[in-house]
Amino acid sequence: MTDLKSGSNLEKVLRAGHFAFTGECGPPKGANVEHLKEKVAHLKGMVDAVNVTDNQTAVVRMSSWAASTILLQEGIEPNFQMVCRDRNRLAIQSDILGVYAMGIRNMLCLSGDHQRFGNHPEAKNVYDIDSMQLISLVKKMRDEGKFLNDEETDVAPKLFIGAASNPFADPFEFRVHRLAKKIQAGADFIQTQCIYNMDKFREFMKMAVDMGLHEKCHILAGVTPMKSVGMAQYMARMVPGMDVPQSVVKRLREAGKGKVAEEGIKYALEQIEEFKEMEGVAGVHLMAIEWEHKVPEIAERAGVLPRPVV
């Protein structure tokens, strides 16, 4: 594999044809390094890379690049997330160079939730460029060694470029086309929004496969195990672009007291089993929100251990 784009572990796992398994970790709301280290310790050896979120839901946290470097120190490969909400093109490009210099090799490009939902709704947003343009920008810096203004960089940042796709947002018919546009712009891998509506996702993947998108890009299916009925209801009602069918809520409720979390994990495991076989799906992105300590158990029961060493 001499033609690797970044040489990241995630890239190598995917290129070798393994079923990828990635995790996620939100940086602390403060400078609590120990807490971050504790959380990610649960993920070590369980996943191929760990997404480090960037002020997710527009709530201020430790910067994603700084938290990503802490993961590196801990021997865990980060997938550095960057949103377009908080930086203009100057800051974006300097951060791209910065994270590469620190040894980060994966980067997920996102628009970012609007600050209206966060803890600083009074903020001015930036959105100088959008997520599509960010993907294209990282690719340009990596492959052409040029900044957005066409000036040359001395050392190009060799990053494995990720993007998000939400099959459940509207208009549904356009979603697969927007995915295609992101791949065209330069996305090497895709991590989808958390999936609960399997029918809709099957339909989405069929369209993606019919368009041959899975051959141009690695698509990782997003999975978030439900911890409680309340969480399911909250996601169904409050989280933009989330599709939680009532049947899922019902299933959790019927599990009975004290057994809901286990039912949530069971549902996630069934999903993972199906994704392993689903055409076009190259892996799973497990977003165990504030449930990092459950990841080893889920990984074990999902039969994705040990993680390949490539």
């Binding site: 628009s111 609007h114 959008d130 997520s131 343009q133 998000a164 939400n166 947002a169």
Partner: peptide, 9 residues
């Protein structure tokens, strides 16, 4: 966004 819509639509 010039290449929308985002996932929040």
């Amino acid at each position: 966004l010039l290449n929308g819509p985002c996932g929040g639509s």
